[in-house]
Structure formats: C-alpha cells, structure tokens
Write a protein that binds this DNA or RNA. Structure first.
Lengths: 211, 211
DNA sequence: CATTGTATGTAACCTTTGTTACACCATAAC
DNA sequence: GTTATGGTGTAACAAAGGTTACATACAATG
C-alpha cells in the first residue's frame, strides 16, 4: 500500500502523512459498475483514489439521475468531506466507472490532519476547489447548452476518462447520465453519425472525430 | 468595526482572530445594485458580510446570466477563496442585492489564519460546504424542474432574502436571473396571478400565497 | 397636456425536447 | 433451428419554452 500511496500521492503529501495514511487506511478494490455510495448513505470514510475512475451522480426524488463528474487517481471526494462535516447523509451517488483501487481513510483523521499537515489542508482545499468548478461547469452545460452540445461534451469526457475511442454504453445509459430520454439520444447520435463524427454499433460507439 | 465583527462573527471566531481581522480588514459600504465583482476580475480580498445581501451569478460567453445564490451576513464567498487558491480570475459575478456592509480581508491572511486558527478553518470549510450545496440545489432546479416551479422557488427566495412580500423587480430582471425570456416569465407570472398566488403591478410584485 | 421611454399583456409561430408506439435486428438461451 | 430479450431506428405527436411582433398602459419630463 505504501508504494501505491507514494506513486499517487508522494508529490502531494510529506512522508509522515503518507505513513499515517498507510497505518489507518484500508486498501479496497472495486469492480466496474459497483455502487460505492447511494443517496442517503452514511459516510464511513474518505476515499483516496489509486487507479481507475468513479462516476459521481446527482439524483432527484423520482430517481432521475444526472452525471456530475468523474474522480480519477490522486483525487478524493469533497462531497464525502462535505457530508462528514455537516454530519449529514450523502447527497450523491457514486458508481465505479472502471475497476478501481482506492484507500479508505476514517473520517476522524480528517480534522486531525487538517490541523497537523499543511499538505493535507492544501489537498482538501484543492479538492473542494476542483469539485466546485466541475459542478459549475455541469451547471453551465445544463443551463446554457442544448442537448446536442451536451452530448458531444459527454462523449469527449468519456473518451478522456476511459482513454479509449470506443464507448461501451447503450443509448439508454447515456440518456440516464444526461437526464434525457433514449429516443432523443438515439436521434442526436444518428445525426452525429451522419456528420461522420461517430460510428454507431450495438452496445458501443466508436468516436471518429468530435473536432 | 470591532463591534460589528463581534456581533456577526463573535460566535464563530476567537477573540484574537477578531482582533486580527479588525487590524488588517477594511470596512466597506456598497449600495444596492453595485457590481462588486465581474467575470475575469482579479481578486483583491475576501469579503466578510456584516449586513445586507449579495447576489452571486454565473455568466456564459454570450453574457447570458444565471442566479446562483445570495450571500448574507455572517457569510463569505467561497468562490473568492476558490479563485485565490487557484490564482485564477473570477468565474462569477457579484452584485449587491441590498445596501450592504462588509469587511474586506487581504487574501494573504487567509492561508496564515487557516494554519493558526481552528475557527477560521472551520469557517472556511463550512463556507465551501454551504456554497457547494447551494450550487447543487440550483443544478437540481435547472436540471429537474420546469420553469413554473423554478419561478415559484425564485420568488420564495426573494421574499426570504429581502424579508418583504413585495418584490421590486421587472419581469425582464427576473428573466435574466432564471436565464429565460421576458415573455415566458410574464406568461407564468400571469398564471400565478390567476391562481391567486401573487398580484402584479408595474415594477413590483406582491406575494400573496405561494403555498 | 403631449411626448418619450419603459413595463406589461397577448397572439402567433417555431424549435427543442420528450412521449408513445412499433418495426427490426442481434445475441443468447432453449 | 426457434424463441426471448434487449438494443436501435423512426414516425407521429405533444408540451415547454423561446421568438417576433404589436398593442396598451404607466410614469416622468418638458
């Protein structure tokens, strides 16, 4: 575990902090598709990602979903901290986008380290900073852009996160992420195909050129 | 200034911190409607609100706006901190909703106090926590609700912030805040009037009962 | 009182998005 | 093979919201 911590967090944390994390943290491996947190869950710990990616979503009362952002290696979940601080339940849902390795740190340590280590403090602030910006960008997207542009952004981000030009999703799954309907997404995807930007196949989409 | 700090922040900060703030902070008074920050501005300091309220907005490239939330007394602007940390320009616009009194603290002090005072640390985290939640609620609203419901939410919030059942705005101004068009807002307001929820007048709206 | 500028009301129309319905096709299960 | 299941394509329609256009009303000013 120490080695993985050094590889992914060595440039962020001082040696003593790395050691403390190694002592109290527990290593976890979760498969793609695994639901790591649901709305209303109580928070047990703060995750530090080693590899893979986690998809973070918002949900309304009717169970409608909206993709917020992805967490990648070297990142943590501000929302989790958010909940710990407020001693409230989770307001988001988190699902492994890929097979993911991470270290869970008990929440009590958070405050202790915040006082003790400048590097931890900076990390937590930076994390809040990043998350706030990402939520703002999603808000921009939902408020100011039309569905065709949102779909293109979505596909680009998928390509980046999974580092592959093939997107392994059904139209229905994409519709859930964008909080739209399958028919609308199929329609817009078909338009993109006719423009030569993508190729449609059953259960996967090949990205040619989203310019 | 000390007295105002004690009144509004005495329950949050220890005496030494209050004294430090009083030493380095500058007291400001801004009239309703004053633009305190525009997109792209560099940040000079962190504001601590004493009285009044500040409207925080997002803007896209075309200059279209969207109301994010209001800052009230005892609150600060995480976005500002956000920008200080990243040494980036402002991503939001801030306009005084009412005549507002506040204290500006130079950004350099922020990091110093974060190490020195637990109460300041807690305040900053709490502030991030609140802002993140507010942005999430706006996102919920934009993503999951229709314009009629968003309008009702908007009117309710206006009543709360200004502590008055009369809203001093034109339909056009409301349309800007909700990123809609004047005609749509007039249409929906008229519907609310016919339902007996509000009374429409030139330049102001009287709220009767939004249930 | 006449003029001007701004706020509001309303109709007609268009675009985007969502809904329903159904056909067709690929794959896996039998 | 046949059947069942789930994914995709498409048409027809509905609803929400945005746009254009214009009438009207109010208030401030000269």
């Amino acid at each position: 575990m120490i080695q993985e911590l050094k590889d992914n967090y060595g440039h962020l944390f001082e040696k003593e902090l790395i050691n403390e994390i190694a002592q109290v943290g527990t290593f976890k491996e979760v498969p793609a598709g695994y639901t790591m947190m649901a709305i209303g869950d109580y928070i047990r710990g703060v995750p530090l990602l080693i590899s893979g990616a986690i998809k973070v979503m918002r949900e309304d009362k009717e169970g409608d979903e909206l993709l917020l952002y992805y967490l990648e290696s070297g990142e943590t979940c501000s929302m989790t901290m958010n909940c710990c601080m407020g001693h409230t339940k989770s307001e988001i849902k988190a699902v492994a986008e890929q097979d993911t390795k991470l270290i869970m740190v008990p929440v009590q340590k958070m405050e202790e380290w915040t006082a003790k280590y400048k590097s931890w403090r900076d990390f937590v602030f930076q994390s809040y900073h990043n998350r706030l910006n990402e939520v703002l960008h999603i808000l921009d997207s939902v408020a100011f852009e039309k569905m065709d542009q949102r779909l293109v952004n979505y596909l680009k981000e998928k390509v980046r996160i999974n580092d592959s030009n093939t997107i392994q999703n059904t139209h229905q799954e994409i519709a859930y992420d964008l909080h739209s309907s399958r028919v609308v997404i199929s329609r817009l995807l078909k338009k993109l195909e006719q423009m030569g930007a993508i190729e449609l196949h059953r259960n996967h989409i090949k990205i040619i050129d989203l310019e």
